[in-house]
Computed example of a mutant assay.
Amino acid sequence: MQHRAQAVPAPAALPPIATAADARQLAEGLMDVMSRLLGVIEQETELVRAGNVREAIQLEPNKTELSRRYVSTILRLKASQQYFSLTTPDLLAALHRHHEVFRAMLQVNLTVLATAHAVSEGIVRGVNAQMQRRNIPNTYTANGQRAVPGPRNMTPIAVSRSM
């Protein structure tokens, strides 16, 4: 069963910045949203590491909203890149450094989530293999070799993805 990703509405296009006050406000807004998003992601990572997946799932609405704000702010920053480069290069460099830390922390989160997914998949496959062994009759051919069970001897396993 495939899950479809929920479509996030496209952020409203904001005009590029034109003043130093707008530049500072945009930079502060970006740093704020990245910090808040990192806080949620770190919390999610710790919950998943501890095996509290249900609690981690409850963070999803907040994470989605912060991600939407992050994308919107980044798009406005890209539209304003020339202004930042010409008038506030130090602020732009600080934003780049902050963004690199942000990306590194996201990579840690993605690694933890991928590991949790692989482990849970391995557990389900192991349980399925054990169940199949129990359901397969031990029979032998005329030559005394173990008979290979047919598809009708296999019992499917059902897994509920809802928690």
Rank of each mutant, 00 (worst) to 15 (best):
T64E: 13
N62G: 06
R76H: 03
Y83H: 11
E46M: 10
T45Q: 10
H96A: 15
F84N: 04
L59W: 06
A93S: 13
F84E: 00
Y83A: 10
P89I: 00
V53A: 07
L95F: 07
L47E: 13
N52D: 13
V53S: 08
S72V: 06
L95A: 09
G51N: 00
S67Y: 14
G51D: 04
A79E: 12
R68D: 11
E60V: 09
Q58Y: 03
Q43N: 13
Q58M: 12
R97I: 06
Q82S: 12
R68F: 09
Q82W: 10
K63H: 03
Y83T: 02
L92N: 02
D90Q: 13
E60Y: 11
Y83L: 09
R54L: 07
L86A: 14
Q82M: 12
R69V: 09
R69Y: 02
G51S: 08
L92Q: 12
T45W: 05
D90N: 14
L91I: 08
L59G: 07
T64Q: 10
H98C: 13
T64K: 08
F102M: 12
R54I: 10
T87A: 12
R97T: 12
G51E: 08
N52V: 05
R49C: 04
V71N: 03
P89G: 01
L47N: 05
R69A: 06
S72T: 08
T87Q: 11
R97D: 13
T88H: 15
L86S: 11
L77H: 02
V48P: 11
A94D: 15
I57G: 01
R76E: 05
F102P: 07
Y70Q: 08
R76C: 02
R76G: 04
F84V: 00
I57W: 05
H96P: 00
I74C: 01
L95V: 03
L77D: 00
D90F: 04
T73F: 04
Y70K: 06
V71C: 01
V101W: 04
